[in-house]
């Protein structure tokens, strides 16, 4: 399925996912969220994962992000299988290597924009300054506002600033525009695109919004726990040209 990418050198592979399955026990019923997923994610790529709800895209992202465990299969991150990692190793993995952006922003309501970013920079190894991270997402002027004083789009951009401020290897975004109207969503996507382009952060965005796929390097289609198709955009659309 992904044979056309084999010319890429091995050291540029950030994630190598092999035969990943995930079965949830929901009461009496077993739910097969992932049924054997194989894929690779390359350095500096922007991937959009598309699929309807229940397709397994969030489960895949959660396992890659070290938030959930796999039933079987492997996720090799820079040569290390994170499905075998201990709780402590996973915490460290999330702490130093992964940046997360969530659908509902998940900011700390008691902290200002700057402080929400500082939550991460305080514990990171080579962070940027919180002010710089916020400037990248265009919020250099709203440093001292609390989440309750910010709009949804602004809150999500604080979340992006927070995610990138540690200079992560990979940025994982779960429905980042899901709770936003389209105009605001585009501003958020522009921020993501800029981070990917300027900082070279490998970025995975999951969404059920087909229109967002236009800004990706590659688009991974999931349905029913399997990758049904991976497509490559020859020409990436800037987010400003996206419409939904």
């Amino acid at each position: 399925m992904n044979g056309h990418m084999t010319e890429v050198q091995a050291e540029d592979i950030v994630f190598n996912v092999k035969g990943l399955t995930k079965v949830y026990q929901m009461g009496e019923v077993k739910v097969h969220a992932l049924r054997g997923v194989d894929m690779e994610i390359y350095s500096r790529e922007l991937i959009v994962m598309l699929g309807p709800s229940g397709s397994g895209k969030s489960t895949l992202l959660n396992i890659i992000g070290g938030l959930d465990t796999a039933t079987s299969g492997q996720v090799i991150y820079r040569g290390k299988d994170i499905t075998k990692a201990t709780e402590q190793e996973l915490t460290e993995y999330r702490r130093f290597h992964v940046g997360f952006v969530f659908q509902f922003y998940n900011l700390i309501p008691s902290l200002t924009a700057r402080e929400n970013v500082a939550v991460v920079t305080d514990i990171a190894k080579r962070p940027m300054k919180p002010e710089d991270a916020l400037a990248i997402v265009g919020l250099g002027e709203r440093l001292d506002h609390f989440p309750s004083q910010l709009s949804g789009g602004e809150q999500q951009r604080v979340a992006i600033a927070r995610a990138i401020s540690k200079n992560p290897e990979v940025l994982l975004c779960d429905e980042p525009t899901g709770a936003l109207d389209s105009a605001t969503g585009i501003v958020v996507l522009e921020a993501l695109e800029r981070v990917n382009r300027e900082l070279g952060t490998t970025t995975v965005v999951i969404t059920h919004n087909v229109d967002i796929a236009g800004m990706a390097d590659r688009v991974v289609h999931l349905s029913n726990g399997l990758i049904s198709e991976i497509t490559r955009n020859i020409v990436k659309k800037p987010p400003g040209q996206l419409r939904w």
Binding site: G65, T91, F96, F102, N106, L107, I108
Partner: peptide
């Protein structure tokens, strides 16, 4: 719990 879980996701340890 949501706030604390978010911090865990961001790489905070249980002790933190």
């Amino acid at each position: 719990s949501r706030e604390l879980a978010s911090l865990r996701v961001l790489g905070y340890t249980r002790a933190e």
